[in-house]
């Protein structure tokens, strides 16, 4: 991060509201994302860490345009994606930003063979000159993701593959159109522990060799440090701490990050963390558009009076390590 690269995707103040319940007279809204900002750089990964419901998937889904954002400025190569109104531009963006889903059993259509799943994006984006070339390209991709012998795998149906193999197919499919950005939404969390590292290493190769920018979403702060240069910690739709992965994971400053790391059952150094100050009941609040204060105030052992009234601003610590907490003012 010493030399300044140009960000390929810039997200500024991403906000997303969902309707939770709607009655005749009014709708109740929840704010799943509140003022989330981050950049993605070529050949680098940003990990988003946070517990369930913190809005990790929602941010990825907004980037891949499955959801519309309530308010945001997302720029791709400097151009706001809202300007990609013309179909061509839309396609260009859809091609360059690919998604890998959490559930390898849900992300491949059970009725299509592996060949179809990987060939389809190639056909859609005009990457296939003829049948022969298409098949060769698909086999090449399957080899890239380590599914050998490729010609055998190509003719299989998803149910004939293991979870790890399916996830490799999903990666091959994402890779097919040579994207700049891959959004990986918990790509290994549903896999056997024994095969997780293989998938992670495959993605590391892609990142380093193809210069792909990764958004790596995970529950697991240890793999975040292993895979990603930078890490952002999210709590109920807010980024509470972000910066270089080493700094965030080895020297966590925000009380929530400290809790996350203390909760990791790691042998050795972090063994004797004291979690007694943290409130476990009444835990994760639902953030509403008019909620105020620090989202973590309910559970925070260091909460100050100001914490319930005003949202703490982002503070820069050393390097590019940022934290949002009133303790650092």
């Amino acid at each position: 991060m010493t030399e300044q690269k140009d960000a390929i995707v810039t997200v500024d103040n991403l906000t997303k509201d969902f309707v939770v319940s709607r009655s005749m007279t009014r709708a109740t809204w929840m704010r799943a994302l509140n003022e989330v900002s981050f950049d993605l750089y070529p050949g680098e990964a940003l990990a988003i860490v946070g517990e369930s419901g913190s809005g990790k998937s929602t941010s990825a889904r907004i980037l891949s345009q499955i959801y519309n954002s309530t308010g945001s400025e997302v720029r791709y190569k400097g151009e706001p994606i809202r300007d990609f109104v013309k179909r061509e531009g839309q396609r260009e963006f859809a091609r360059n930003v690919q998604m890998i889903f959490q559930d390898p059993f849900g992300s491949l259509n059970p009725v299509h063979r592996v060949f179809y799943q990987v060939a389809r994006p190639l056909q859609l984006h005009g990457r296939s000159r003829n049948k022969q070339a298409l098949r060769e390209r698909v086999l090449e991709l399957l080899e890239t993701v380590g599914l050998t012998p490729a010609h055998e795998t190509a003719d299989k149906f998803p149910h004939e593959l293991s979870g790890g193999q399916r996830q490799r197919v999903a990666i091959a499919r994402a890779l097919a159109v040579e994207p700049d950005v891959i959004l990986a939404d918990e790509p290994i969390s549903m896999l056997d522990v024994s095969i997780r590292l293989g998938i992670l290493n495959l993605m590391l190769d892609l990142k380093e060799q193809h210069g792909i920018a990764f958004l790596y979403i995970t529950h697991d702060i240890a793999t975040a440090r292993y895979f990603a240069e930078r890490t952002a910690v999210m709590y109920v739709g807010h980024m509470v701490e972000w910066g270089d992965s080493d700094a965030v994971t080895q020297n966590p400053q925000h009380p929530y990050t400290q809790l996350l790391i203390a909760a990791v059952p790691e042998p050795g150094e972090h063994k004797s963390h004291d979690l007694s100050g943290y409130q476990h009941k009444g835990d994760i609040p639902m953030w509403q558009p008019d909620s105020q204060g620090c989202p973590f105030a309910e559970r925070c052992p260091h909460a100050l009076p100001a914490c319930r009234d005003t949202m703490p601003p982002a503070r820069k610590l050393e390097g590019n390590h940022y934290v949002r907490c009133h303790l650092f003012e």
């Binding site: 889904r61 891949s64 345009q65 499955i66 839309q90 396609r91 859809a94 091609r95 690919q98 998604m99 889903f101 959490q102 559930d103 849900g106 992300s107 491949l108 259509n109 059970p110 009725v111 299509h112 389809r120 994006p121 859609l124 984006h125 999903a170 499919r173």
Partner: peptide, 28 residues
């Protein structure tokens, strides 16, 4: 709701293809 339908949507498949080629065969 399945992710393969989302994946097809992200990929830019046409609605008709999603209905007839991604969803319909699952309803055989």
């Amino acid at each position: 709701q399945k992710e393969f339908v989302l994946a097809a949507e992200c990929m830019g498949e046409s609605k008709l293809r999603i209905l007839l080629i991604e969803i319909l065969p699952n309803l055989t």
